[in-house]
Amino acid sequence: MSEHEHHHHEEHAQRAPSALELRVRALEARLTEKGYIDPAALDVLVDAYQTKIGPRNGARVVARAWFDPEFRRWLLQDATAAIASLGFAGRQGEHMVAVENTPDVHNMVVCTLCSCYPWSVLGLPPTWYKSAPYRARAVKDPRGVLKEFGVELPPATRIRIWDSTAEVRYLVVPLRPAGTEHLNVGELANLVTRDSMIGTGLPKS
């Protein structure tokens, strides 16, 4: 495709919204007209979940738990309150449980029935978390799933899977990487990936 054609194609795509786009616009227009929706509220919601509420929140919780033994104890005992103390309370994080990886146990979180996910600390879930293959396999073949993520655990490690079937939301506290004793909380948070807090990944080392 030439530069010109490519450009033309993109312009065309902008001018012709997809059938789904039209359906969504129609629904939003009807709900607005009927007084159910304030369209400005939708803008604020989208901005909040695109720029304010995401896995960096959870990374700060985990980093703090690595750094501060007192906070770690609190987090494992009452995750909802400990997380709220850092300012990350709220929607889809009303009932939090933090589960800690150890050399013997690796935790992994799934929602086989829908897409339950701790929005307040991890933001909106990635597509794979909501997908049929992950939901089907995580409970039955967790090692196979981890392999797809490039994670291989020692054979002796016990895998502990939490299926979020009610309103409790789970946050995995991954193992702190070795050789990070000199890092501060901010530097530690940079090592904590989204996947490591779901249990399908490990922190950066």
């Binding site: 990635p126 597509t127 794979w128 997908s131 049929a132 939901r135 089907a136 396999r137 409970v139 993520f149």
Partner: peptide, 14 residues
């Protein structure tokens, strides 16, 4: 209700 079912397809990372 998908837990344990035989579902084809890769888990596509993001």
């Amino acid at each position: 209700d998908l837990g344990g079912q035989d579902v084809p397809g890769a888990i596509v990372q993001e």
